[in-house]
Design a protein around this nucleic acid. Sequence first.
DNA 1: AGCTGTGTTGAT
DNA 2: TCAACACAGCTG
Length: 338
Amino acid sequence: MDYSCIDDNTSNTSETLSMSKKTPPQATMRLYRMGSGGSSVVLDLENGVETESSRKLPSSKFKGVVPQPNGRWGAQIYEKHQRVWLGTFNEEEEAAASYDIAARRFRGRDAVTNFKSPSSDAESAFLEAHSKAEIVDMLRKHTYADELRQSERKFLDGDGNGKKRREEVLFEKAVTPSDVGKLNRLVIPKQHAEKHFPLPVSVTPSPTKGVLINLEDRTGKVWRFRYSYWNSSQSYVLTKGWSRFVKEKNLRAGDVVCFERSSGPDQQLYIDWKVRSGIEKTTSVQTVVRLFGVNIFNATTNANTNDAVGESSSKKRSREVDLFALGCSKKQAIINVL
DNA sequence: AGCTGTGTTGAT
DNA sequence: TCAACACAGCTG
């Protein structure tokens, strides 16, 4: 799968960024909060002095978009008197576009949205093919664009099961006990990391930041991981998102994770896993977590819209990088600066 | 410690 | 339905 910069600013937004009929006047002066943490400071109209008590968040001009105290933007939609949270976003427009997607899924193609451009037939089909909870989950994890693109590609392949993928194996690693333990991280062997997943220079010295990468598994599911360099241990690691993968795939020490890249022009990244050789695959998670025919893990996201489990996104504004741009091709990288 | 997203309320 | 606001509780 591609790195996340794509999903954060492409199909959610870029193709559809014409202004809404409902967009309020652009010229309206509004306060934008700078920096981190605190709220913006507004003038106290009584005495013309800034006061703590008059701190106020800036309203969004977009429907379904609400400000967050740290300067980011939340998206939400209402259904049956209940709010459905769609996640938080660095850019107001991303949040607005996410609302639009949810609105089309919840209310149909003609739903009132922030941006014009009705979704394509393909996108409408994609929306209909997924439950509300699944769509919400994608929005919250910022994987919607990737999954949509993936589904379109499968459709074009013609053989619906996606088995025709041609990819080059980048490297494999037999996971260690700590890779599947409570540390919630996977150490990427240095030689592989530096060869295939070079971090941008500006990120390398900072162990806490890193980049977000998206990889697709053999089921077509998109996984997003934080990838960074830890100075303390001088190692490259996948952190956020990794424990979910371990849990869902029921990875055990000795099992092998495999990183692959599509040989096609898209250079899609994939992650695959194999049970440690000598162990029957029937011990895999699929049998373990199925209960009365229901996949328990998936059930949480399929059961109810309000159950959609989001991940808390990166705390600081995350720099999201197309690592291919840095490591493999000359494409322009990057999107959101930390 | 900082952030997300829920609880709540009042408006449209 | 919707957004504004406060902040509990979660996450890194």
